[in-house]
Amino acid sequence: MNTLEEAELCFPQFLNSSCRRNMQPHSVSVLIYVTLSTISLITVILNLLVIISISHFKQLHTPTNFLLLSLAVADFFVGLLILFQIILIDGCWFLGDLMCALYFLLDYVITSASVGTMVLISIDRYIAICDPLHYPTKVTQNRAKICASLCWICSIVFQCLVLKDNLDHPGRFNSCFGDCAVVVGYVAGIADVILSFIGPVTVIVVLYLRVFVVAVSQARAMRSQVATVRTANISAKKSELKAFKSVSVVIVVFLICLCPYYCVTLKGRDALLSTSSLAFVMCLFYFNSCLNPLIYALFYPWFRKSMKLIVTLQILKPGSCESSIL
């Protein structure tokens, strides 16, 4: 009897203070393990391809692509974070309190940086569609790099403040040995939800509603234009509208996957975030990072072409960065 009880504990040597394992059928555990491992591997590989593509090929050095690069970096780290969920299949945390605090910090930073990058992408598309004549001067490569960098820096600083108590005293909110939980105070939790979710999502929705109206009017105008209109102008508008559609899919899918995560954190006066209770919504957010590169492959011919060059190792040839991708 004691042997059975000890088998259900994360740390059998601490009989009275150890957390209990999530006892589930072996087949279920294997299925979860295989699924999360597959998602993690695909997420890391595909986003690494996006990072290499945009970083290597000079034709892809555009403001919009630099923002997509920032998003791909966040998605790449999400793929690595899934490994921690694999460790937690049985509900036991064996990596120590400090690693638990750092795990949640990385999760918070990535989420915040992803949302911030989505706001930047929305602003980029807003200017490109609503003010195309001034787009080349308003949105430059250097400005896109600076904005993306600031987004990450602000996310790191802000989330360190939100999780300050947990970082100062790792494990203080654990209910038992083998638990991994953090507590976000009421004020910090409200600030996090407003600055990392409600505010950015509101900006994204408002901008895209305005862009949608302009895009529809431009599409109608192009259909009504006669042959005397210069083809260059029409093709340029078509290119921007196509980019708008593809990026819109990325943002809509992102919001669908992110909203359940924050809806859970809104419950309760103090948001007690344990890895077991948030497993589903976190995995949904993680899965979004796997979907983004697939969306790029579906809508962006340059990604399919660059991926082929990377897989076949043609990027190792001298001057490959000058290859024609577009």
Score class of each variant (00 low, 15 high):
Phe76Ile: 10
Leu81Asp: 10
Arg223Gln: 14
Phe177Val: 14
Phe287Asp: 00
Ser53Val: 11
Thr202Asn: 05
Phe104Tyr: 15
Asn65Tyr: 00
Ala221Gly: 15
Ser235Leu: 12
Phe197Asp: 13
Phe77Val: 09
Cys154Lys: 07
Asn16His: 08
Gly185Arg: 06
Leu298Lys: 08
Ser53Gln: 09
Val216Gly: 08
Ile123Tyr: 08
Ala279Phe: 15
Phe303Ser: 11
Ala72Tyr: 01
His61Trp: 13
Val252Lys: 04
Phe158Cys: 09
Met23His: 00
Ile42His: 07
Leu316Ala: 11
Ser40Lys: 06
Ile32Ser: 13
Leu161Ile: 08
Pro301His: 01
Ala113His: 05
Leu60Pro: 05
Leu102Pro: 07
Ala188Met: 12
Val187Cys: 04
Arg20Tyr: 03
Asn22His: 04
Gly319Glu: 06
Thr111Gly: 15
Asp97Lys: 07
Arg304Ala: 05
Gly79Asn: 04
Gln225Asn: 10
Leu272Cys: 09
Ile190His: 02
Ile315Gly: 01
Gln159Leu: 06
Leu69Pro: 12
Phe158Trp: 01
Val162Pro: 04
Asp270Trp: 01
Ser114Tyr: 00
Thr38Met: 11
Phe76Asn: 08
Asp179Leu: 01
Lys58Met: 12
Met282Gly: 15
Tyr296Arg: 11
Ser175Phe: 04
Leu163Asn: 05
Ala113Cys: 11
Tyr126Thr: 06
Leu167Trp: 02
Pro132Glu: 05
Gln314Tyr: 00
Ile82Leu: 12
Val205Asp: 03
Ile86Gly: 13
Phe177Lys: 14
Phe212Ser: 14
Asp124His: 15
Tyr135Thr: 02
Val201Phe: 09
Tyr103Glu: 02
Glu8Pro: 04
Leu309Thr: 11
Asn233Trp: 05
Thr231Lys: 13
